[in-house]
Design a protein around this nucleic acid. Structure first.
Length: 258
DNA sequence: TTGATTTGACCTCC
DNA sequence: GGAGGTCAAATCAA
């Protein structure tokens, strides 16, 4: 991985951790509905990270602050139930179920695992049939206090490849703009994602429950330039919320490498 | 009515 | 035979 990518990933990780903690704090200290905004922030970071993770597998790396970090990119030689082997696995640990990862998932199973007191939930890409996408993920709580949820992604999303390869009017002058809303309004700086050094923050992790399902998110909706392709990606957001990914163009922006 | 979720049964691997 | 993963009918919710 290039130095630029390292820096971008580092910044994204820092932002993601900040957003997670800020969300947790505000959820318990304010009656103002901040869920959509923070979900969008988390979506943005998570999606960007997922792109990097897909194109640039890294060895296991855990944050000292929490586990909300892409930690493993590994290949499993084990065959699945259909005899497929060599599918890539990507493990993500986080204080909350990692549901806002930029993709739409459909739950197809839930099972009690012998080695764990918590149930494991099984998801596959919501467009598995329509677009022959074989991406799946498993979500399981692996730790109680503080709660840690492990999301294991298996396979790659081939349903999104065409979206990234198509010309995009928002890709201008080396910048990529993901548009959360078409309404031409400006989001106040106060609510835009802020990158704060991790060391300046207080790590706050609210103890979760044993019920993974109650914390799972529904289908996501997300508006960018190509509404047909992106409309289902992220949850709705406040008007005019833009996200610039300036640095992405300086390296190979093909997150799915098929 | 339609799409998503739940859950017991079934399949595959070890 | 046990455990993990998937299927599919039943159920739920919008």
């Amino acid at each position: 991985m290039s130095h630029g990518v390292d820096k971008a990933v580092e910044a994204l990780l820092r932002g993601q951790e900040s957003a997670y903690r800020l969300k947790t704090v505000l959820e318990h200290a304010s009656s103002v509905p901040t869920e959509p905004l923070f979900d969008t922030v988390l979506d943005s970071f998570s999606f960007a990270l997922s792109l990097f993770a897909s194109s640039n597998p890294q060895p296991h790396r855990e944050s000292s602050q929490n586990k909300a970090t892409p930690v493993v990119a590994q290949k499993s030689p084990k065959k699945n139930s259909h005899g497929e082997e060599g599918l890539e696995q990507y493990i993500q640990d986080s204080p909350t179920p990692f549901c806002n990862d930029g993709f739409s998932w459909r739950k197809y199973g839930q099972k009690k695992i012998k080695t764990s007191s918590h149930q494991r939930c099984y998801y596959r890409c919501a467009y598995a049939k329509d677009r022959n996408c074989n991406a799946t993920k498993r979500v399981q709580q692996i730790q109680n206090s503080p709660s840690v949820y492990r999301t294991t992604y298996v396979g790659k999303h081939i349903c999104e490849v065409n979206a990234f390869l198509q010309p995009n009017e928002d890709i201008i002058n080396g910048s990529k703009m993901i548009r959360f809303d078409k309404i031409d309004q400006v989001m106040p700086d106060s609510v835009m994602p802020q990158l704060v050094p991790v060391e300046q923050q207080e790590a706050i992790i609210i103890e979760g429950t044993d019920q993974i399902m109650n914390l799972e998110c529904g289908s996501n909706e997300f508006l960018v330039e190509d509404e047909q392709l992106w409309g289902y990606q992220f949850p709705p957001c406040s008007p005019g919320n833009f996200m610039f990914l300036d640095a992405l163009s300086e390296f190979d922006y093909n997150p799915f490498h098929v």
